[in-house]
Design a protein around this nucleic acid. Sequence first.
DNA 1: GTCTATAAGTAGATAGAC
DNA 2: GTCTATCTACTTATAGAC
Lengths: 206, 206
Amino acid sequence: MQDSKKNVQSNRRAEIVAIATETFLENGYAGTSMAQLAKACDIQKASFYHHFPSKDALFITCVNEGYADAVNGLIEIRADESLTDWQKIERAIHNLYASIVTSPTGRLSPLIAEVSRTLPGVANAFHKDYITHQRAALEAIVSDGVTNGAFKAQDFDVFHHIVIGPIVTLSLSREMFAKVADLEAHFPVEKLKRGHLDIILRELEI
Amino acid sequence: MQDSKKNVQSNRRAEIVAIATETFLENGYAGTSMAQLAKACDIQKASFYHHFPSKDALFITCVNEGYADAVNGLIEIRADESLTDWQKIERAIHNLYASIVTSPTGRLSPLIAEVSRTLPGVANAFHKDYITHQRAALEAIVSDGVTNGAFKAQDFDVFHHIVIGPIVTLSLSREMFAKVADLEAHFPVEKLKRGHLDIILRELEI
DNA sequence: GTCTATAAGTAGATAGAC
DNA sequence: GTCTATCTACTTATAGAC
């Protein structure tokens, strides 16, 4: 009984965070008002302040959601002993496309840039809790492959730059031009991912 | 006399646009108030409305500035008969890094994402007047090289993805973490550009 | 072309009933 | 936990003097 009550509470909270995230993605941080959020969540403005102390706090919660899942995927891939080094890097790329282009975690990047000066804590947490661990997880997979003699040694700064760059830009482009162009025609995720992956694999060949 | 008067006027206007652009970059579009802009430009709020009919119109002017210069650079590189195809692609990459990472044109990308739903005209103009021409200019340089037998034939969608992706992401990262990290230590433009260029040149080799 | 003053509306956040 | 009602501060934009 206690448990089911708790679940209802946390479900309501999780629901609010999910809807708020979509609303922030549509209108930006400063461009989203508490009134808009209230309407989208079908709740009164004042009721928000029972769940979150401020608009800032709600936004920070939205940004923080999803970090763990995104990074844990990469860590699990590295630990999976049934996979070859080549299979691991391929799965890692798929994982990054999914978590950056599709999920809110990556799509929120331009909003972190938006508030980088006014709420520096958001960018700081994103760097510390997501970027650093994502980078380390990817570096571990590459490093294992090099140690095993499967991959050519890499300058990891450059490798990370050409792996992450196209993925984040694809995500940003799809946010920028969501209302302008046919996204699948102009930014075909599967096709670009395949071409990008081919180049990454070629870079790793000895 | 008429001319010098005109220059004073347009200089004042250009000065306002330059300062407003920096202020928008700092605080985002919705996060920047006319009062902030007025203070930054050392002018009264109401005086803005002599130069621009609205905040929207001022922002659109800020975004549009710099398109022509950025694209013309690539067009001139293609037309320069003193350069080999390899020199052209190398200069094109340098040009893209300069115009996307350093200049306001590229740095404003996250702000275009911010207003993509509320001011879709901004994203539309950016796509039509900048992205399309930049893509076409780069494609022409690659296509010339292929025709001349210097470059391997490319799927240009994928090529554009891996050329532009790391550059735009570098620019976005530097905006996101401007207040968090030592930018040159975490995002060393010259080093990443050199590594990225090496990979692009390798992809073009026959 | 720039100013002071102000209109008309919206922002985030709170008080207190139920 | 959600509601209605409300506060204060701030928003874009305009009016009209100089």
